[in-house]
């Protein structure tokens, strides 16, 4: 299980990296944490002719902002940066909660936030966060930088809006100020395994009713999904088990789930309802 040969480029600035990537004629691939790409290369399922290694680009390794203003996460920020909340408020607490379900400790030391989004594994926790909260992606190329909303960024399994010569350089997460409550529930065979189903919920509850809500699910279909129809149902309802059970049924109806060796469609759909209910209940608790 040794990878096929490739040419290795190690830029030290973003400009250099973009130029290098643009210059790669075919089969160029950006290498960030490598925790998904390199296994695929070792199995020779991925065989890029050229790797452009972003690890020298310290300019992409920063988190700024806070829960009130929203945060800017550089693409090269490692998962482990969120082991302890890097700022205060519900958004940071959510990120610190979610990161614990991403693979395992050594993988989190090396894997990157941007790499996860660009890889677009349907079971990626960060992809679910981006899709549910409505992140904005910054895609750079030699031609300049464009922004793409999360809803338009994830196109399918391992497929995004990124063009071959583009690099995801930063991700903006919108504010989640004090007063928002969060819930995240993931079910996998063993902790750290790929999610068989997971749900993320953010709620504002006021006067015994849900005032504002965001709900997303991941690991169940080809991409993470924000469930706007279910959000619309929840708005104004009391945050009760009965409401959440109904929401779970609506969520099951809203998503055509996929099957794999660990979960048939029937089982995954079943799990989908459970994770939605549990994420909502956690947020409301």
């Amino acid at each position: 299980m040794k990878p096929a040969a490739f040419a290795y480029l190690a830029p030290t600035t973003l400009g250099e990296a973009l130029a290098m990537l643009d210059g790669v004629q075919d089969d160029g691939k950006v290498l960030a944490g490598g925790q998904s790409l390199v296994p695929a290369m070792n199995f020779r399922l991925a065989r890029p002719a050229t790797l452009v290694d972003l690890n020298g680009l310290s300019e992409l390794d920063h988190v700024s902002g806070d829960s009130d203003r929203g945060v800017v996460i550089g693409a090269l920020v490692r998962h482990a940066a969120f082991h302890a909340p890097p700022f205060e408020g519900p958004l940071a607490e959510l990120l610190a909660k979610v990161v614990r379900d991403i693979a395992h400790y050594p993988i989190r030391q090396r894997g990157t936030f941007g790499g996860s989004l660009a890889h677009a594994d349907p079971a990626s926790e960060w992809c679910l966060v981006a899709a549910t909260l409505g992140a904005t992606m910054h895609l750079a190329s030699v031609a300049g930088t464009r922004t793409v909303a999360a809803a338009d960024f994830f196109r399918g399994t391992f497929t995004t809006a990124l063009a071959p010569n583009e690099i995801l350089v930063r991700v903006d997460l919108p504010p989640l100020p004090a007063g928002w409550r969060t819930g995240f529930y993931e079910f996998s065979r063993r902790k750290g395994d790929f999610a068989l189903a997971m749900a993320l919920a953010t709620l504002q509850i006021d006067g015994g009713a849900i005032r504002a809500v965001r709900l997303g699910v991941g690991g169940v279909s080809d991409r993470p999904r924000r469930l706007e129809t279910v959000e619309a149902f929840l708005a104004g309802k009391p945050p009760t088990p009965a409401t959440f059970a109904e929401a779970a049924e609506l969520a099951r109806g809203a998503v055509a789930v996929t099957a794999d060796i660990h979960a048939s469609e029937a089982y995954r759909s079943d799990l989908l309802g459970t994770v939605v209910r549990r994420a909502l209940a956690e947020a409301a608790a």
Binding site: P39, R190, K191, D193, I261, H262
Partner: peptide, 15 residues
Amino acid sequence: LTVSLADYLPPTALE
């Protein structure tokens, strides 16, 4: 179908 340790699942310290 189970040719990797992502699919064949021996227990870890948590199980």
